[in-house]
């Protein structure tokens, strides 16, 4: 296990390093010049050159890269070209919105999808089992922004139960307000996420229901519930956990859509602004942190699966069945 952790950690670092290079290079290949955003339209060549010098974009790329990495190693995400404010504190302020949003949506999606997926499998021959499968199929096709706007129309504009968007300016200092403004976005993400999760939970449950070990347990006197509890859940969880990791990571990356629909000051909207202004340090900072989060999520999912499944620890395939 120690060797695995070490190897997996090294893998994480290498992935992060590679991702930083790719991120940095791709960003500079995009058309546009950050100096333009700093100067007014029709600025003279000297003004533009001065702007470039002030933000350091006149230096050769390797030097710029070394500078950025040097900062990262010291735990500094750099300084915004536009606002001249440090990126790090801004990112962490934004995470105060995006992390609770993602975590709550994820938890709610699991709470919906696990029972629903189980019923869709166990009761697949009943009308409600089929209905659940159908709803999940349909739900997969629904775009996040569309669902978000429907929810806003129904619960905010019509019923006026919840705010349509925005987040209190002083954030979690007003916990009630802050929570209320996250309700609709959380529900939006959770519904979309659970639609696809239900499918995976259903198929993992079908595999378990069909399994010989469940039949063995029942043949020797376990009730169906006991056999499911002792053998079914763990076995079904192994393939579901990979999907949970992927869903969580993609929700984090896809937060930009929901944040813009609900006007939330999260990481996604910070990225959107950064891109619009060619603010490289901001874009790099946000994407670096997101990449790190995605890698950690993948690591965690992998680790949990190994703890559950001894065949994965032994390096055998066949773990996901």
């Amino acid at each position: 296990m120690a060797r695995y952790l070490l190897r997996r950690f090294a893998f994480l670092l290498v992935s992060l390093a590679l991702a930083s290079v790719v991120l940095f290079v791709l960003l500079r290949m995009l058309p546009g010049d950050p100096a333009n955003a700093l100067t007014s339209v029709g600025a003279s060549a000297e003004q533009i050159a001065a702007a470039r010098e002030s933000i350091g974009s006149d230096k050769p790329l390797p030097e710029q890269f070394a500078h950025w990495i040097g900062q990262l190693v010291r735990g500094d995400l750099g300084t915004s070209f536009i606002s001249s404010l440090p990126v790090g504190p801004e990112v962490s302020a934004r995470l105060n919105v995006t992390l609770p949003l993602t975590a709550a949506a994820f938890a709610l999606a699991v709470l919906i999808a696990v029972p629903a997926g189980f019923v869709a499998a166990y009761r697949r021959r009943t009308w409600y089992g089929a209905l659940l499968s159908g709803i999940s199929q349909l739900g997969i096709a629904i775009p996040v922004f569309w669902l978000g706007m429907i929810l806003i129309a129904v619960f905010a504009l019509n019923a006026r139960w919840l705010p349509a968007g925005s987040f209190p300016p002083d954030g979690w200092a007003q916990p009630g307000e802050a929570s209320r403004s996250l309700v609709l976005p959380v529900v939006t993400i959770a519904l979309v996420m659970s639609a696809s999760l239900i499918r995976y939970v259903r198929s993992a449950t079908l595999d378990v229901l069909d399994s010989d070990y469940l039949r063995t347990a029942r043949a020797l006197g376990s009730s169906f519930g006991q056999a499911m509890w002792r053998h079914g859940m763990r076995n079904a969880s192994v393939p579901v956990i990979s999907i949970l990791g992927i869903e969580l990571a993609s929700t984090l990356l896809g937060a930009v859509v929901v944040e813009s629909v609900f006007a939330l000051p999260g990481l996604g909207s910070m990225l959107a602004t950064g891109i619009a202004q060619h603010d490289y340090p901001v874009i790099q900072g946000v994407l670096f942190i997101s990449t790190l989060a995605v890698l950690i999520i993948g690591f965690a999912a992998d680790l949990i699966q190994r703890i559950i499944d001894p065949r994965l620890r032994a390096g055998l395939s066949g773990g996901v069945r």
């Binding site: 399994s211 010989d212 070990y213 039949r215 063995t216 347990a217 029942r218 043949a219 020797l220 006197g221 002792r230 053998h231 763990r234 076995n235 192994v238 559950i308 499944d309 001894p310 065949r311 069945r321």
Partner: peptide, 21 residues
């Protein structure tokens, strides 16, 4: 009745046992 009046041994010894336990 199961296990008490009759118990069974199945054909496939690999899949008949829970792989995770």
């Amino acid at each position: 009745v199961r296990g008490h009046d009759a118990a069974i041994v199945f054909q496939e010894p690999l899949t008949a046992l829970d792989p995770l336990m």
